[in-house]
Amino acid sequence: MSSYPGPTLVLAQQVGVPAAEVWAAWTRTDRLATWWWAGLPDTTHAVDPQVGGSFRVASAQADLGADARFVELVEQRRLVLDWRWETGAGQEADDRVTVELREHAHGTLVILTHEIADAGADTSMRDGWTGALTSLVATLEGQG
């Protein structure tokens, strides 16, 4: 059971590449920039993949941003972030975002879990996560 009082989003996405490539897409700034809000030309990306390190993406044009800290990293298997969206009034408490990678014969299954701290939050961010994962697949499978 989650210790976060808000809703929990869980999305799963198949990616036809090895876990090492998916891991690099999440943990290397140059790779993150190829798929996360790649259509927004002013997007900035910064990743420091170590416990306590930052994960940040922002676009002034879209008035969107996320500022997170790595809580756990298990190479090519799992990363956990304390997460805050930087839109509107911002957040009072961190959400928890977990990305699990399960490699198999046909590539990697990505399971993203977003536990929301705000009990009154809606789940409209599901569309954003779905778009991000779709872009990840298109980029890693050579379609983006």
Rank of each mutant, 00 (worst) to 15 (best):
M1D: 04
S3D: 07
Y4L: 12
P5H: 05
G6H: 07
P7D: 08
A12C: 11
Q14L: 09
V15N: 09
G16K: 13
V22R: 14
V22Y: 11
A25M: 13
W26D: 00
W26N: 11
R28F: 05
D30N: 11
R31D: 10
L32S: 03
W35T: 02
W35Q: 01
W36A: 02
G39S: 14
L40S: 12
P41W: 06
D42S: 06
T43P: 03
T44H: 04
T44I: 10
H45K: 08
A46W: 01
V47P: 02
V47I: 12
D48L: 06
P49D: 07
G52W: 05
G53Q: 06
V57E: 02
A58C: 08
S59W: 01
A62M: 02
A62K: 10
D63Y: 00
L64H: 14
G65E: 01
G65P: 03
A68P: 03
V71S: 08
V71I: 08
V71Q: 13
L73F: 08
L73C: 08
V74N: 05
Q76R: 14
R78N: 07
L79R: 01
V80R: 13
V80A: 11
L81K: 01
L81P: 01
D82Q: 13
D82W: 08
W83G: 00
E86P: 02
E86R: 15
T87M: 15
T87A: 15
T87C: 10
G88A: 13
G88N: 13
A89K: 15
Q91R: 10
A93I: 03
A93E: 12
D95T: 08
R96G: 04
E100P: 02
R102E: 05
H104M: 04
A105W: 02
H106N: 05
H106Q: 10
G107R: 06
L109A: 07
A117Y: 03
A117Q: 05
A117F: 02
G120A: 14
T123C: 12
T123A: 14
T123Y: 10
M125P: 04
R126Q: 15
R126K: 15
G128N: 00
W129D: 04
A132N: 13
S135G: 14
L136W: 00
A138N: 12
T139W: 11
T139C: 15
L140M: 07
G142N: 05
Q143P: 02
G144C: 12
